[in-house]
Amino acid sequence: MHDKALLRAYRTMRTIREFEERLHSEFATGDIPGFVHLYAGEEASATGVCAHLDDHRDTIASTHRGHGHCIAKNVDVKAMMAEIYGRTTGSCHGKGGSMHIADLSKGMLGANGIVGGGPPLICGAALAAKLRGEGGVAVAFFGDGGSNQGTTLESLNLATVWNLPAVFIAENNGYAEATAATWSVGGGSIAARAAAFGMPGRTVDGFDFFAVHEAAAEAVERARNGGGPTLIEVQLTRYYGHFEGDQQTYRAGEVQQARNELDCLKRFRDRVTGDGTLTAAQLDQIDAEVARLIDDAVAEAKAAPLPTRADLETDVYIQY
């Protein structure tokens, strides 16, 4: 990767981290409506995958834990923050909230409160891309819980049957809410299920941006060139609970270990500064710029207007 791409990747991961860390503290004030599911700790997955996608041809479908996917797919950070605060300046005019952020202009089909809801959507998007013949690729992110849903399994099958330009990213953070993947995933491997559907399957270290980036590059190139779908299992750890307020009685110690020893941002920084590719000063500058961006996003969201009664009758039906 060239220097500009590395700096862009670091900025994306740092933006996701700061966005989520700030939401963790802001949600505690009681000013944010609805539920919030944080992506902190999983930044290398969304960033490594979406680095290979563009706004024009490529689409993604997300999960309830979608902020990282949105940011990695270039959805405007300030519009996202306003959406989470339920303001009219939000990406969905304050009507979707955290779990339903979408921006079709960026190829972001939406975060989704339905477990396993994304894979069927990207089969449709991938079919459309195939018919257009422009080389577009559709990507579905889902969790270890979503990997057990019939919607996901049917989508894997359909993607092979129709030879779709699709990539399925199973983000295995160890728990479907509070249910351990080691107990709920039959056979112990999500990636191994790919063989049953006639597609390649691969497991990667989700704390290593470069490992995710390499695996995603191969899968996206294969899809673009008519080679069909791929399933990638990204193994990682979320730093917070399933939702804000989760007491996390089902785990202990592993989060602190992940933060101290495995953190994707630390590993990225150590690698690119250790080999002299980038300097600490370059990365520190990005840190400062991202911190200001998040401060501004929160301030502008809080100052933005709330929807009115008249807004209840808008955005109800698609206007053709």
Rank of each mutant, 00 (worst) to 15 (best):
D3Q: 14
A5V: 05
A5W: 01
A9N: 01
Y10F: 10
R11F: 01
R11H: 00
M13N: 02
R14E: 03
E18R: 12
F19G: 01
E20R: 02
R22M: 14
E26M: 04
A28R: 15
G30A: 12
G30Q: 14
G30C: 15
V36Q: 07
A40T: 06
G41P: 10
A46R: 01
A46N: 05
C50M: 13
A51M: 07
H52V: 03
D55S: 12
R57D: 10
D58L: 04
D58G: 07
S62H: 06
H67M: 09
H69Q: 13
C70D: 06
C70S: 15
A72M: 00
K73Y: 05
D76S: 09
D76M: 08
V77W: 00
M80R: 04
T88P: 07
T89L: 07
C92V: 14
H93F: 13
M99R: 11
M99A: 15
I101H: 05
D103V: 06
L104R: 15
K106F: 09
K106P: 07
G107W: 05
G110V: 12
G116D: 06
G117I: 10
P119G: 10
P119I: 07
P120V: 13
I122S: 07
G124D: 10
A125R: 03
A129H: 15
A140I: 05
F141T: 02
G143V: 09
G143I: 07
D144W: 06
G145A: 13
N148Q: 12
T152L: 11
L153M: 15
S155T: 06
L156S: 08
N157K: 07
L158I: 13
A159I: 03
A159W: 02
V161C: 01
P165A: 11
P165K: 11
N173V: 00
Y175E: 03
T179Q: 09
T182I: 12
W183F: 12
S184A: 15
V185R: 02
A195N: 15
A195W: 13
G198K: 08
M199K: 11
G201V: 06
V204H: 04
F207C: 03
F207A: 07
F209C: 01
A211M: 08
E218A: 14
A219V: 10
V220L: 06
V220P: 00
G227P: 13
P229K: 13
P229N: 14
T230D: 08
V234D: 01
Q235D: 09
R238K: 12
Y239Q: 09
Y240N: 06
Y240E: 09
Y240R: 07
R251C: 05
Q257T: 13
L262E: 08
C264P: 11
R269I: 00
R269G: 00
R271K: 12
V272A: 01
T273D: 08
T279N: 11
L283F: 04
Q285L: 13
A288R: 12
A291V: 10
D296Y: 03
P305A: 14
P305H: 11
T314L: 11
T314S: 14
D315Q: 11
V316G: 04
Y320I: 09
Y320E: 11
